[in-house]
Design a protein around this nucleic acid. Structure first.
Lengths: 134, 134
DNA sequence: CGTAAATCGGACTTAATCGGTCGGGTATAG
DNA sequence: CTATACCCGACCGATTAAGTCCGATTTACG
């Protein structure tokens, strides 16, 4: 419970790797998969999402690969998770989606405290930048 | 991803309810299940765990039920989660269990930053007490 | 050109976890 | 002795996560 998904872990490893390389150099998904012993196809798909969100730039074709799209200081862990999962990390259904996705919302006595906890956790993920983990 | 389990949600609702009642009064699992429309059997099991950990006192037999075992200010959200799940909330396998439960631990480049994030999240859950949500 | 190497993207399968249920046991007030 | 409540393990179905497969598109280079 409360664990990050493998996709997010792989994404973070990949982002760090790309950010750590020389600025001009392209890195392929294959390279990263081999280097860290990650399942290639899953990693590849994660990197596609990261490219779509504009964190890395994709270069297709032979000798293609990925390069970092912006400064590592501008990329938060929070936004990376959001890119991969399609939403920000939320500790409860009624926070992630609409309140009426929860059947007991009306007489739920813990939604306010959970909201407070959520705010604090948001801060944790938003304040850590990729630049801090390179 | 990163969501609390239903068991934890139910446990928090139950603990809050017990803590909110008059100090002498016993509360049954059935009562809480009906009041908040929670599945009785699941809730009951959660409350048994909370009793075993000494957060609530169980009274068996007819007119039995549960009463709060200690001050609401002494009970952290963190410890409630721990009681229900059998472990503290961890964002990665290698944090929850031993490092060698992770196949890529040795060349994992993100374990340190994840550790830092974990520390901050620990603080969030540890610093909020039951007394704050009653 | 044609080929090889890379990104794209959906569909599918398998594995693991979660949420919930069931059945039987123990304690105890009246 | 019975009704009511806690106790506890086993089980099952649904959902989600993890991983795989297949085919398409792009592009450097001989």
């Amino acid at each position: 419970m409360l664990k990050l998904s493998k996709k997010v872990e792989y994404g973070l490893i990949a982002m760090r790797h790309v950010a750590a390389g020389e600025s001009g150099r392209v890195t392929t998904a294959k390279e990263i998969a081999e280097r860290y012993k990650l399942p290639y196809e899953l990693l590849a798909k994660v990197m596609q999402k990261l490219a779509k969100r504009g964190f890395i730039v994709s270069h297709q074709g032979v000798y293609g690969g990925y390069t970092l799209a912006k400064g590592a200081g501008e990329i938060s862990i929070s936004s990376i998770i959001d890119a991969i999962e399609g939403q920000l990390p939320a500790i409860a259904q009624c926070i992630a989606e609409s309140p009426d996705s929860c059947s007991i919302y009306d007489n739920c006595t813990i939604k306010n405290p959970l909201g407070k906890i959520q705010t604090n956790i948001d801060t944790v993920f938003r304040s850590m930048k990729l630049s801090e983990i390179v």
